[in-house]
């Protein structure tokens, strides 16, 4: 399986990372190398194996159904690049 410029552009759209032409070229090469290397896994027979999602095997407990808050709107917004009247501000979206 190999990655071409179309795939790299599609993935960069999905990852929401803008790339320029130079980066695109470099990424095609690097990603192909990495994917070629991980293709090694195809050699492993996993026919009857279940996927392992986590090493954690203790039963999870429900959290208490209580409202608790250590934060305030003001604190939450403090790190925002732009906020106004208790909201995050983003560029205008018109559909």
């Amino acid at each position: 399986m190999s990655i071409d410029n179309k795939t790299v552009r599609k993935v960069s759209k999905l990852a929401k990372i803008r790339i320029n032409e130079q980066e695109e070229k470099k990424l095609i090469e690097e990603l192909n190398n990495i994917l070629g290397w991980v293709d090694e896994l195809k050699k492993v027979d996993t026919e009857k194996i279940e996927p392992m999602l986590s090493v954690f095997n203790e039963s999870m407990v429900m959290r208490r159904d209580e409202v608790f808050s250590e934060t305030s709107d003001e604190l939450v917004l403090k790190n925002a690049p732009e906020s106004k009247s208790g909201f995050f501000v983003v560029p205008k979206v018109v559909e």
Partner: peptide, 17 residues
Amino acid sequence: YYDAYYLKALKVRQLIS
């Protein structure tokens, strides 16, 4: 690509464990 890569890797992870 999910099955070919990610799911495959999760299965191999089980074998490693």
